[in-house]
Design a protein around this nucleic acid. Structure first.
Lengths: 146, 146
DNA sequence: CTTGAGTTGACAACCGTTCTCAACTTCCTG
DNA sequence: CAGGAAGTTGAGAACGGTTGTCAACTCAAG
């Protein structure tokens, strides 16, 4: 509250830490959607453990910054993945292994907007995700779920 | 395990109870998506209270039977509503009041199927929900969320 | 009315996620 | 390179929605 404060500090400056690097790194490895808990476990197994709370915090920060994509699994768990492009897109996700393909849906975008407008709704957002079983999982039958 | 058992009893016969009727009735009233907890509260306020666990069980049974539609709110809560048609359809839901409009997406259905096939995925399912703010809520500005 | 199988409800247990806060780093400054 | 303010961490508690438990209860068939 004293006037030694230089200028208006809009937001906290981010800081590089081992933990943040570890989480980012773990995400860089796969093209599969992973839950916070899976990543936490993966890091622990790998040798550079990170607190679960930190994993959650970091993922949230990355998601807010648009660096990772988040989606909800069919049973409500949040899944994260680092996508190639930052622009809006959807996913075709394997419900067995989490592997995902980025897909566009120009048609869907338009459709969503027009349907919304037609019914007098504003600020339209849409959730569009495709779930399936990828060829590898079908061949292997080596499911994560049973 | 004795052979007095008449025939193969495939499933348990359902039974009509005050509770089941109450839940079904509460759902019949609105065209808005409601959470289990909201319904539980609504029933309590209305005078014919039903245990929370029972509300959950009943909603699940109704959903399994295809009598009500379920969807996940943006923060992961399950929302239920009795829809006019039993066929597959999507929703345009007001994120303020839960009011919903049933919509078709023939284009989307095809698109989903073809995209899935193109990437070698099988058993394709799709999640398509539209969120917006309905005209009434926009006018009233009487949001449930703040 | 009897009776037994489905049903209920208060409460504990679960599970993913967020909060708390003291101890610890990072990084700016002198 | 030391000093220190401020961001960051992590173990564990708390949270909120949902499901499991199990003795008491109540439909509905006989």
């Amino acid at each position: 509250m004293n006037d030694t404060t230089p200028t208006v500090r809009t937001a906290a400056p981010p800081r590089m830490t081992r933990q943040r690097a570890a989480v980012a790194d773990a995400l860089g490895d796969t093209d599969e959607f992973r839950s916070a808990q899976q990543l936490h476990e993966l890091l622990r197994a790998r040798g550079d453990a990170v607190g679960l709370a930190t994993v959650y915090r970091t993922l949230q920060a990355l998601a807010d910054g648009g660096d990772v994509d988040v989606l909800r699994s069919e049973d409500g768990e949040s899944l994260y993945r680092r996508c190639a492009r930052r622009e809006h897109h959807h996913h075709l996700v394997c419900r067995s292994c989490g592997r995902a393909v980025e897909i566009d849906g120009p048609t869907v975008e338009q459709w969503a907007a027009s349907v919304g407008a037609a019914h007098g709704f504003a600020d339209i957002e849409h959730t569009v995700e495709l779930w399936g079983t990828c060829s590898t999982c079908r061949a292997t039958d080596d499911r994560l779920v049973e």
